[in-house]
Nucleic acid binder design. Sequence first.
DNA 1: CTATTTTTGACACTTAATGTCAACAATATA
DNA 2: TATATTGTTGACATTAAGTGTCAAAAATAG
Lengths: 103, 103
Amino acid sequence: MSTETLGEKLRQIREQNELPLRKVSALLDIDVAILSKMERGERKLSKEVVLKLADIYKCNPEELLVLFLSEKIMYEIQDEDLGERALKVAEKKVKYLKANKTK
Amino acid sequence: MSTETLGEKLRQIREQNELPLRKVSALLDIDVAILSKMERGERKLSKEVVLKLADIYKCNPEELLVLFLSEKIMYEIQDEDLGERALKVAEKKVKYLKANKTK
DNA sequence: CTATTTTTGACACTTAATGTCAACAATATA
DNA sequence: TATATTGTTGACATTAAGTGTCAAAAATAG
C-alpha cells in the first residue's frame, strides 16, 4: 500500500506539472513559505487548499480529499491500540447517519 | 444502534453510581462546571479524564475509550460525503502500521 | 557566478481550548 | 415554604494551537 502523505503527493503532482511553488502559491493566494511547509507536512493543509490544488493541477479532487480526511482521522487515533475498533464504530455511525439523512 | 454520546453515557453511569458532580469533579481535580459541560457535550473530554472516570466508576475503560476516539473521528469527517471512503483508507493504514509495528 | 527556487526561523496575529469563578436555576429535603 | 444540595450558565482570564508575513539562508538550475 501507499504510505505517501498528501503533501508528498501534491509535491509530486506539482513537479510533474513543472510548476514552481511561486506560481502555485500565487494562484492559491498564499505565501510560498506556507505552501512549501504544507507539502512537507510542516503545516496543515486545509480542505479549501486541497480543492484549489486539485483545480490547478486538473486532477481528481475526490482522491485528494479522501487522503486529506484519512490523514485527519489518523491524526486523531495516532498510535492508539483501540484505533481500529474506533474506526469500525465510526463507520457504523456514518452508515447510520447516511441511512437516516433524509429523515 | 446506540446514538448516545460519550458525555450522556458518562452522566448515566454517574447517576447509576449516585455520585454528584461535586464529588466526581473533586476526584478528577477539575471544576464542577467543566464536568457538567463535558457530560452535556459543551466541553471536550480528554483521554485522561475518560480514563480517570472509568477508574472512578469501575467500568471498562476500553469501551469508553473506543467511544471517545470514534467521536473524535466523527468530528473530523463531519458530514463529508467522502467520510466513509476516508474511514476505509484509514483502516488500511492502521492495519498496515500494526503489521509493521515491530519492524 | 547568477538567477531562480525552496527552506528555515523569527515574529505578530488570530482563533480555539482550558481553567476559574460567581450568580443563577433546579431539585430534594426538612 | 424555607433551606440545603446539586447542577447550569456565562463572563472573564490564561494558555495553547493554528495562520500569515517576512527576510535571510540554502539548494538548485542555467
